[in-house]
Amino acid sequence: MARKIKLFDATKCTGCRACQLACKQWNNLPAKQTENRGSYQNPEKLSPTTWALIRFDEVDSGVNGVKWLFRHEACMHCTDAACVKVCSTGALYKTEYGTVALDSGKCNGCKECVSACPFGIPQYDPSTQKVYKCDMCLSRLDNGLEPACVKACPTGALRFGDEDEIMSAARERVAELDGGGYLYGDKFVGGTGMLYILQEKPTLYSHLPTAPSVPTSVIVWKDWLKPLSLIAPGGVLAAAFLHYLIKGPKVVEESSLDKKGDA
């Protein structure tokens, strides 16, 4: 099956937050008491009960100008998904759509994915000892529907479809914007399953890594130490076996001991 990806076009987003709410509705996520902290952004950040969030950033522009940037923050569904790589229980996995889904039943809350994700997406809930994140509405995809956030988006800022189609539409749009749009997501972690067309340079968006990658700690652990953790004990066992065969057990001979003892 062709890989499915989501496109967020910030140049079309009006920050209405229909996506944020649709996500809560479809996934049946409760609201938590919040307060206004001097921003429209609420809740402040992703949480076990908020899997998609519109981030609001105000950026100075010119003498009197300002830019108001909106960003749909949710799982990026990386090709090289660090979370899947580190997930020891198999709760996080790649689906047939190329998205990263989460089988909550398997998750034991080891939180390794939380530290591995370069985008800070998985959210740990101590009360359930589980991690939560956007799964691109797997239950909808399985029924031939697009994710709830995409369905709810009034302006077409969110789109969903086959990778080829979305990629070419995104490139076309960036060309059309002629310097007014920045493609984000095609150049790292093997390409993300949620692509951004940003209205401004990525550096102007809060909480958005400019060069995200699978963390070195994950590579050291999973690509080097993991094989080593099999090789090393295996080698030791093999060496012990050989030692037993060649050198033999260290038996204390009575005569020699006695001799020495008497000496």
Partner: peptide, 8 residues
């Protein structure tokens, strides 16, 4: 609740 959470 979902709306109150966003604009409380």
């Amino acid at each position: 609740p979902w709306l109150a959470e966003m604009q409380p």
